[in-house]
């Protein structure tokens, strides 16, 4: 009988150790399988196969019962959508990541990523609002440089180069992007100046932005229409004077001012775009 009990104990021991082994293995294997799934998704992401990467991150999320990959997977889904220029979806998943974030670092990372999506989507006011909110957050008081960096980017892409220069200067007075922003500011034409000189001498605004032919023709029309108008009044043909003055002279005078503004703006857009192209293709630092 004793031997039987002993034997039973023996059996129980075997079963116990089997169970332990089994569950341990189960736990380890489940962990491994999820991890290898994450690596698989990451590899798709690294190969720029964003659509498929999203599928695999979603699969990871679906089978991840303990939610250990909730932040990582949602964040990467958000990033994938961003790189496919599907911005609303991107923000949706980045918000999920933000909600799943446990460490402050993760919260910060997801919030900044949302700012970056807003920059690319050109919804600058939303980005600005979020940046201000991050800046006021006590958890992130030591991250001012990063906040300023992205504020600078937001301002560059929203064509506010003076503001951008200020933001980058707050990080470092010799920051390369500050220099770039300052250069753009210096290169730009003054729209107000172009308009003001055109009020005084028609065509001069166009000359200022290098459109000489257009400037000359504007001047020509204004002299011609002005002559006709003045002549009509001098010859007491008041009705003709009013008509010609309104329909001809005023029209070309206004057109001249509009053109001065348009050409200066056009030049400025080209200057901005040159800098933005450089940022896109040649700048080595962090980009949105």
């Amino acid at each position: 009988m004793t031997s039987l009990i002993k034997n039973n104990k023996h059996i129980a021991l075997i079963f116990f150790s089997m169970a332990v082994l089994f569950f341990a293995e189960l736990k380890i294997s489940a962990q491994d399988i999820l991890l290898s799934q994450k690596n698989y998704a990451d590899s798709l992401f690294d190969e720029s196969k964003y659509f498929d990467a999203i599928t695999e991150y979603k699969r990871l999320l679906f089978f991840d019962e303990t939610n250990q990959f909730e932040f990582d997977a949602n964040f990467k889904i958000g990033m994938s959508y961003k790189l496919g220029a599907k911005y609303s979806n991107s923000i949706k998943y980045l918000r999920l990541a933000q909600r799943a974030a446990e460490a402050n670092e993760e919260t910060f990372k997801s919030k900044i990523e949302i700012v970056k999506v807003n920059i690319l989507r050109k919804t600058f006011s939303a980005g600005k609002l979020l940046l201000n909110q991050i800046e006021k957050d006590e958890r992130f008081t030591d991250r001012t440089d990063e906040i300023n960096y992205w504020r600078g980017w937001l301002r560059m892409l929203s064509d506010d180069w003076e503001g951008a220069s200020e933001s980058f200067a707050a990080i470092d007075s010799l920051h390369p992007l500050k220099t770039l922003s300052d250069n753009v500011v210096d290169e730009k034409y003054s729209v107000t100046f172009a308009k003001v000189i055109s009020y005084i001498l028609p065509g001069s605004g166009q000359f200022y932005s290098g459109k000489y032919l257009s400037g000359l023709m504007s001047l020509g029309w204004n002299i011609f229409a002005g002559y006709l108008t003045v002549n009509s009044f001098l010859e007491d043909r008041v009705f003709d004077g009013i008509i010609i003055g309104n329909l001809l002279w005023l029209r070309f005078y206004n057109g001249n001012i509009q053109n001065a503004e348009k050409f200066a703006l056009e030049k400025n857009i080209n200057i901005s775009n040159k800098a933005l192209r450089y940022l896109k293709n040649n700048y080595e630092g962090k980009k949105p």
């Binding site: 089994f22 293995e25 189960l26 294997s29 489940a30 399988i33 799934q37 979603k58 699969r59 679906f62 089978f63």
Partner: peptide
Amino acid sequence: FQNFGFAQSTNLFSPNNRFKF
């Protein structure tokens, strides 16, 4: 056998898991 069965149920790409997903 148990190990085999387990591997079946935790392979994320098993037919059953693809069905659920």
